[in-house]
Design a protein around this nucleic acid. Structure first.
Length: 420
DNA sequence: TCTGGGGTCCTAGGACCC
DNA sequence: TCTGGGGTCCTAGGACCC
């Protein structure tokens, strides 16, 4: 049996934990640059505000229904996520952190009653530790656990926990579910399935797996088997083997000059390097991408990237130098650029970095002592205390973020104040 | 006005080899 | 007129997820 633990309206809930005045109110959280809606409280969903809609289109609700709006605050969400996950790990063996607000866990070998008890305990404990509500679905496979979780969320009488020990337990639910709502099936595939007359999850479960494999892919075949209760997707081992790492963002305002884009790229490289250190990995290849705003049809479009291979390194300054050269290579004047980013790939654990033939070069390209110093200074005095010189300069790239709440849990200066 | 950011996995097809 | 065939490796891009 596999359980899926999912935080309810995660970003909105994080905001509400530290701003209790938001509780019970319609609330939306906006994307980077305050562009569109990426999270909604239950009350906002009830108003009919869709996922991903433009922020401009919800302004009317501010006046008519007292809709509250917040810019996204990833420092807060990331930290709250760790707290939720740590609590789960205290109570459950083999927790797989699947996303910022979801985790799978192995809950085999328990009777149905014991399982219900355990799930309710998890819910209470997470709520007490973090203030976040979670829903839990448990079933013989990951895909069915997703279905169970959906039911746990939609049926109040289940009190947030839905357990289906047999594949057949889900028959009715699958018949009422569209294929596009099944985990792993997106727009394209559900449209193609419909061409063959398969529109419900129940029909998909009953399709011939071999035919599905031939017409679609082995991926979809696995989904069919999982819907039948045959497990094809195992719990994954924790971290270790992250393969790539990305950091990039769209600008607060279009940028035309190379020198205005550099500081942004430096910032992203630095951020990426920090995460590299955290997981004790090094990158053997780097890709820089640069693009204009594809939604603005009336301007000249350009979307380019450049990749460079190198000896595995986690040296921020070296990564930045390589990234800046790649940026120079792809930059061409005459465009209004809207986004830049860096992708570190071919990651290897630092302990596996092969010895270099020329030791001196190796030393220069890694300089662990220098990185250690930077890391320590920054963790003590603030994340961007020591930066590459190329980070200075124009900060025009910084995103608009009009209504960001404080970093309540990760910054001394922004801790909530309790009046006793 | 505003149009997210960070990932994974799989497949097709080209290059290359013998 | 004929113009191998089978294998591997790599990359780009598609599809999906939250």
């Amino acid at each position: 049996m596999i359980a899926l633990i999912d935080c309810n309206n995660f970003y909105a809930s994080c905001e509400q934990v530290f701003q209790p005045e938001l509780k019970g109110k319609p609330l939306v959280v906006l994307s980077n640059n305050d562009g569109n809606v990426i999270a909604r409280s239950a009350e906002a969903k009830k108003l009919g505000i869709g996922m991903g809609v433009l922020s401009g289109s919800v302004r009317e609700f501010v006046r008519s229904h007292g809709l509250q709006i917040r810019s996204s605050n990833y420092a807060l969400y990331g930290d709250m996520s760790s707290r939720v996950m740590e609590t789960l790990e205290q109570l459950l063996p083999n927790v797989e952190r699947y996303s910022i607000d979801e985790a799978f866990a192995d809950v085999s070998g328990l009777s149905r009653d014991r399982l219900v008890e355990l799930c309710q305990l998890v819910r209470r404990r997470v709520l007490r530790h973090t203030g976040i509500q979670v829903s839990i679905g448990a079933a013989p496979t990951k895909t069915l656990a997703k279905v169970a979780n959906r039911l746990a969320k939609r049926r109040p009488e289940l009190a947030g926990v839905c357990i289906g020990t047999e594949p057949l337990s889900f028959s009715r639910a699958l018949e009422q579910m569209e294929t596009g709502d099944v985990w792993g099936i997106g727009r394209k595939i559900s449209r193609k399935l419909a061409e063959f007359g398969i529109t419900s999850a129940g029909q998909l479960r009953d399709a011939d797996p071999e035919w599905i494999k031939k017409r679609f892919s082995v991926v979809l075949m696995r989904t069919v088997l999982e819907l039948r209760g045959e497990s094809c997707l195992e719990l994954e081992e924790p971290e270790e083997s992250r393969k790539s790492l990305m950091c990039g963002r769209s600008f607060g305002t279009p940028l035309k000059e190379l020198e205005d884009i550099r500081p942004a790229l430096t910032h992203f490289v630095q951020n990426a390097a920090g995460r590299l250190w955290k997981y004790k990995q090094a990158a053997s290849a780097i890709t820089v991408y640069l693009s204009t705003n594809r939604f603005r049809k009336n301007i000249a479009q350009r979307s380019v990237s450049a990749s460079v291979e190198m000896g595995a390194t986690d040296n921020m300054l070296h990564l930045n130098a390589v990234a800046q050269r790649a940026l120079e290579k792809v930059f061409k004047p005459g465009f209004e650029y809207h986004r830049v980013g860096v992708l570190l790939h071919d990651l290897v654990p630092v302990k596996n970095i092969p010895e270099q033939l020329f030791e001196t070069e190796h030393k220069v390209s890694r300089s662990p002592e220098l990185m250690w110093a930077i890391k320590n200074i920054n963790s003590r005095f603030g994340r961007y205390t020591v930066v590459s010189a190329s980070a200075s300069g124009s900060s025009a790239w910084r995103a608009r973020s009009k209504s960001r709440s404080p970093a309540f849990t990760t910054c001394w200066n922004e801790l909530p104040v309790v009046h006793a």
